[in-house]
Design a protein around this nucleic acid. Structure first.
Lengths: 223, 223
DNA sequence: AAAAGTATTTAGGCTAGACTAATTTTAAAG
DNA sequence: CTTTAAAATTAGTCTAGCCTAAATACTTTT
């Protein structure tokens, strides 16, 4: 018996929540609830099931952590999602703000065979349209040496390497000010108190909100 | 609120059952149950729901018939299914016996936008890999002037135009004896009592079971 | 260390869609 | 025209996932 759509979504969600922090503590049920837009009680129930099935280890009132099996499944879902996104952009002329919604549904429907066929057809890509790395068939994902735009020093010239989890509206806005994957930009000034960041893109000056800048990952310009 | 996977499957099923006969009578619940592999009671329940939602008209103990709305939705599902099948074969190197299972799942997950993007990418195909016509965006489907292989006279030369609803195993068997879409063949002899039909394909002689021959639609060889 | 606040779990319900078993309706056969 | 068989419906369960409301367990503040 294979995992349901709900189970797949929970595992992917837990993966994303436990990933960045590297904390000792497990993922809190409240965090899962708010990210998936479900009631906390629903999470409690589902966690119990996931634990029974060996996808997560769970300590009540402490938190959840993926088991090896659970992490594998989560990474498989991420692979599916990103391969689908890349395929839609490369082969079916989707814009980068349109792919997420479509992939969110398709990732639960496609077979492994189809994912691999798309991946091969694209020439085994390593990144999706937002610059996020695609795990390989064994669930191994290369992490990139990138840093958040908010950490770049004033005056530095960088290029856009990745955008994490932004809404279609925000992505369209970024497009409208000239930002795209691999695009070069220079940080002119950073306002204090997490204020707006002034960017020079194509010789134009734009003020970018701090919260959006947190999602932009850049690398040093080496060209 | 859009239709669930279950509703979509029921409507598609009813469409296929009411299509060939053109009978006055509606489709019987038992036929639906056996085709979908569910209990008759489940069909009764679902039919009531479909009727409430305006997808079918229903007379207890008599039969079901699609409404205009229901037929539109059924044709939309068939379009999705066949476009997906054609795309998988043309662009992702699927074999004709592999596409049905994949399309069966995907048809409930893809957006209209994606179906149309695939259709355009293929150059607006009119038929799927099994020769079945693809309804256009308005649900209009061209019917072909074809006849069943079992109705072809002995000695006649025809070519394969369409194969209806066969299992992957049977499709692989047909491939193994040299049959493919558009392939020419000659009916040598037809055994009585719905017995096997002897076919000449590529100068080889093969005996084909009557039940399989019923699913093969052919047209006169005009080349 | 008690009170207040927050996070989590339990208890009990709901819906969709399936099931089995029992009943009712219609159709077919003697 | 009555008996029998087949088809369809009703009644009552079940499971997966969600929900709200109430109870419990931690955490922080005073």
């Amino acid at each position: 018996m294979s995992a349901s759509k709900a189970i797949e979504d929970y595992l992917k969600c837990i993966y994303k929540l436990e990933d960045p922090s590297q904390t000792e503590k497990g993922v809190h049920t409240s965090a899962i609830a708010s990210r998936l837009n479900v009631a906390q009680a629903s999470v409690s129930n589902m966690i119990k099931k996931l634990s029974d099935q060996g996808f997560v280890s769970y300590e009540p009132y402490y938190g959840v952590a993926l088991t090896t099996t659970g992490r594998q499944l989560a990474l498989q879902m991420i692979r599916r999602h990103r391969v689908i996104e890349q395929y839609l952009v490369e082969r079916l002329h989707y814009a980068w703000d349109e792919v997420d919604a479509e992939a969110e549904v398709l990732e639960h429907a496609v077979s492994d065979k189809l994912v691999d066929a798309m991946w091969e057809a694209l020439g085994r890509p390593t990144h999706d349209p937002h610059g996020s790395p695609i795990p390989d068939q064994d669930g191994i994902m290369s992490e990139q040496p990138v840093k958040a735009l908010v950490d770049v020093a004033e005056g530095e010239q960088v290029k856009l390497a990745r955008i994490k989890n932004r809404s279609p509206e925000e992505l369209r806005y970024l497009t409208s000010i000239g930002l795209a994957m691999g695009e070069g930009l220079r940080v002119k000034t950073k306002a204090p108190f997490n204020g707006p960041i002034m960017l020079e893109i194509n010789n134009e000056l734009h003020a970018l909100d701090y919260r959006i800048a947190q999602a932009l990952m850049v690398e040093r310009q080496h060209d």
